[in-house]
């Protein structure tokens, strides 16, 4: 692990993955509480055509342009999902599925057009499917660092407001908060973290960095502030593990490894989380059983003379009646 830190390239990759995981984890907390976990998945898949169009229009592989294209496409997808589920009898889950697959299909069509077409240096565009953390440079790390910092700042400043729209938007509206604006702000944050994550993790799996750390963090605490920080920490740890393991083993893509690391943290949380974890539930059940048995024993012990008296009584009655 430590010799890795001597290689400046790997150091950037490690830094980038950690920052990325952190930002995703923080924002993911709010999408988890708003039951919008899978929206991240839709936005990520939907970003693909945006990346392709940005490349086709500009002809250069500029990460900045790709991010703009991806964000535009993702926001269009979010608007369409809303339109379909609000203006027809299609349910929200089906609307998400439709938008996800149509946008992804458009992306695939454009990608194959680019590959077959006369666009000169197209190689590497398909790296966006699974991401390529190995190509991360110092500039990317600054972008990721800026995003992570911005995310933490915005979430910190608007913490109370986000808390309100996550738990009880109707109440927030009643209090006079601009709930719709806040919802759009959260949507924008999700779009930004997903889009910046695509480069490292890829469109197919980036949503996992949003979902899994926050679900894992939910097992440890009932307080939103603690959950947000913990989720960010889990995300950062998964990013670090992904970068570290994939740098050691040839041919291993960083994105899927980060996702598996996050899943590992999730499983640990399911097992060992206080109160909600399987182990503590088992212990609680055993404790309850023991309490119950000892209570019954105590009752039986205290009741023993009473039952003797009880059995003696009917006998006495019988005796009396006889």
């Amino acid at each position: 692990m430590w010799e890795m830190l001597n290689d400046p390239n790997l150091r950037w990759i490690l830094m980038g993955s950690i920052l990325l995981g952190f930002g995703n984890g923080i924002v993911g907390t709010f999408s988890y509480l708003r039951k919008e976990s899978l929206l991240g998945d839709v936005l990520a898949h939907a970003a693909l055509p945006g990346i392709c169009i940005a490349f086709m229009l500009s002809g250069v592989k500029s990460v900045g342009l790709f991010l703009v294209g991806a964000a535009a496409a993702a926001l269009a997808a979010a608007a369409l999902t809303n339109l379909i589920s609000r203006r027809s009898r299609i349910k929200p889950d089906a609307a998400m599925g439709i938008v996800l697959s149509v946008f992804f299909a458009i992306g695939i069509v454009l990608l194959t057009r680019i590959q077959h077409g006369s666009y000169g240096n197209q190689s590497g565009l398909d790296k966006f499917l699974f991401g390529q953390a190995a190509s991360m440079t110092m500039g990317d790390v600054y972008v990721l660092g800026g995003t992570a910092l911005g995310m933490s700042l915005i979430c910190g400043l608007l913490f109370k407001e986000f808390k309100l729209v996550s738990f009880d938007p109707a109440f927030g509206r009643g209090l006079g908060f601009k709930v719709t604006a806040l919802e759009y702000a959260l949507l924008t944050l999700v779009t930004v973290v997903v889009v910046t994550g695509i480069q490292a993790v890829g469109v197919v799996l980036v949503a996992a960095l949003l979902i899994t750390p926050s679900v894992a963090a939910r097992y440890w605490t009932d307080r939103l502030a603690a959950m947000t920080v913990l989720s960010g920490a889990f995300g950062a740890a998964s990013g670090a593990a992904g970068a570290w393991i994939s740098s050691g083993v040839n041919q291993l893509p960083t994105g899927p490894i980060s996702v598996l690391a996050a899943t590992g943290l999730f499983l640990l949380s399911v097992l060992f989380g206080p109160k909600r974890g399987i182990l503590s539930k088992l212990l609680l059940r055993r404790q309850a059983k023991r309490d119950w048995i000892s209570k019954q024993l105590a009752k039986a012990g205290a009741g023993a003379p009473a039952t003797q008296a009880g059995t003696a009584n009917p006998a006495g009655e019988r005796g009396a009646s006889l």
Binding site: L38, G40, S214, P253
Partner: peptide, 16 residues
């Protein structure tokens, strides 16, 4: 969230 955690994990296993 349960759907999201499970399918991304399994897909990642497949990719690896």
């Amino acid at each position: 969230a349960s759907i999201g955690v499970v399918f991304t994990a399994l897909f990642a296993v497949g990719v690896v």
